[in-house]
Simulated scan of single mutants.
Amino acid sequence: MAATCARSLGKVGWALLESPGTRRSAAATYPRYRRAYGTGGTGAVSQLLSSARGRGGAGRRVLGCAFLLGGGLGLYHTVRLSLQQHLAQDDVKVSSGPLSLTLYQYKTCPFCSKVRAFLDYHGLPYRVVEVNPVMRHEIKWSVYRKVPILMVGDDVQLNDSSVIISSLKTYLIAKDKSVLDILRCYPEMKAVNDRGKEVTEYSNKYWLMLSETETTTTYPEKGMQKEEMKWRQWADDWLVHLISPNVYRTTGESLASFDYIVREGKFGAYEGFFAKYVGAAAMFLISKRLKSRHGLQDDVRQDLYKAVNDWVAAIGKKRKFMGGEQPNLADLAVFGVLRVMEGLQAFDDMMANTKVKHWYRRMEKASRLDEGLAAGKH
Rank of each mutant, 00 (worst) to 15 (best):
S51Q: 12
Y76I: 03
V308S: 01
S292Q: 15
A66H: 05
D348M: 09
G372M: 15
R249C: 01
A314G: 03
E264H: 13
A26Y: 06
T218G: 02
N159L: 03
R80N: 12
A191S: 14
K175T: 13
A346Q: 06
V79F: 11
R127E: 14
G123D: 09
V45A: 14
H378R: 14
Q326C: 10
I286W: 04
L168C: 01
K114Y: 01
P20C: 03
Y270L: 15
D298A: 09
Y106E: 08
L285V: 11
C112P: 08
W238S: 04
D349T: 10
P20E: 08
D237Q: 13
G54M: 11
Y360M: 10
H378K: 14
G336L: 03
M322K: 01
S292W: 14
S287W: 03
V62F: 07
G54L: 11
R339A: 09
R116S: 02
C109S: 15
H241V: 09
L329G: 00
S167N: 08
Y202N: 03
A2D: 13
P20V: 04
G43H: 01
Y219K: 01
S142F: 00
T42C: 12
K222A: 09
W359D: 01
V179L: 02
I286L: 13
P31V: 04
Q225W: 00
V62E: 00
N309D: 10
L75S: 11
L158H: 06
R339H: 10
L150G: 00
S95V: 05
S95A: 06
H86M: 11
V340A: 07
G323F: 00
V278S: 10
T251E: 14
S113Y: 06
K355G: 08
L344S: 07
P125H: 03
V308N: 01
Y33Q: 11
W141L: 08
L87V: 13
V308A: 02
K11P: 06
T4C: 08
R61G: 00
S244D: 15
R55E: 09
Y126T: 04
S82A: 12
T42A: 15
N309E: 00
L87H: 12
L208S: 07
D120V: 06
P20F: 06
L239M: 08
L69R: 05
F284K: 15
R55G: 13
Y202D: 01
A174G: 06
F321E: 00
V12G: 00
Y30K: 09
E271P: 00
E198I: 10
A352M: 06
G324A: 06
V92Y: 09
L208Q: 04
L101I: 02
M229A: 07
Y33V: 14
Q345V: 10
K175E: 14
L373E: 03
D348T: 08
Q326Y: 11
V115F: 04
W231S: 00
T4P: 04
P31I: 07
E138T: 05
K169C: 09
K355Y: 09
R116E: 11
K306A: 14
H137L: 12
I243E: 08
H241I: 05
P125K: 07
K222V: 04
A256F: 08
G153K: 02
V12R: 11
A3E: 14
K169R: 13
R232S: 07
M224F: 00
R24P: 05
G336S: 06
L16S: 03
M350L: 15
F347N: 09
G10M: 08
G72C: 12
Y126N: 07
G13I: 00
